[in-house]
């Protein structure tokens, strides 16, 4: 499974990195984001392209989330 760390990357790179990872392995991906903007952008992209999403907020870090997605 591909894991991507998009922390510190500015728009639209988190989504672009997610897209690239899915081109390699399209079944599942885990994306680490550190802003709510990146979170909603990545989630929206995964929704549009047909993935089931599970997002958890990481403890101890502000606005840092791990988004796990599986192909529907």
């Amino acid at each position: 499974m591909a894991q991507i760390d998009t922390r510190g990357m500015s728009c639209p790179q988190p989504v672009l990195m997610t897209k690239k990872a899915l081109e390699v392995n399209s079944t599942e991906v885990t994306v680490l984001v550190d802003s709510k903007t990146a979170k909603s952008n990545v989630e929206r992209y995964l929704n549009l392209t047909g993935y089931t999403i599970n997002t958890v907020e990481l403890d101890g870090e502000t606005n840092t989330f791990e988004i796990s997605a599986k192909k529907k």
Binding site: A2, Q3, T6, M9, K20
Partner: peptide
């Protein structure tokens, strides 16, 4: 990406 595991 082609390596496949970790990006970024």
């Amino acid at each position: 990406v082609q390596g496949g595991v970790k990006i970024g």
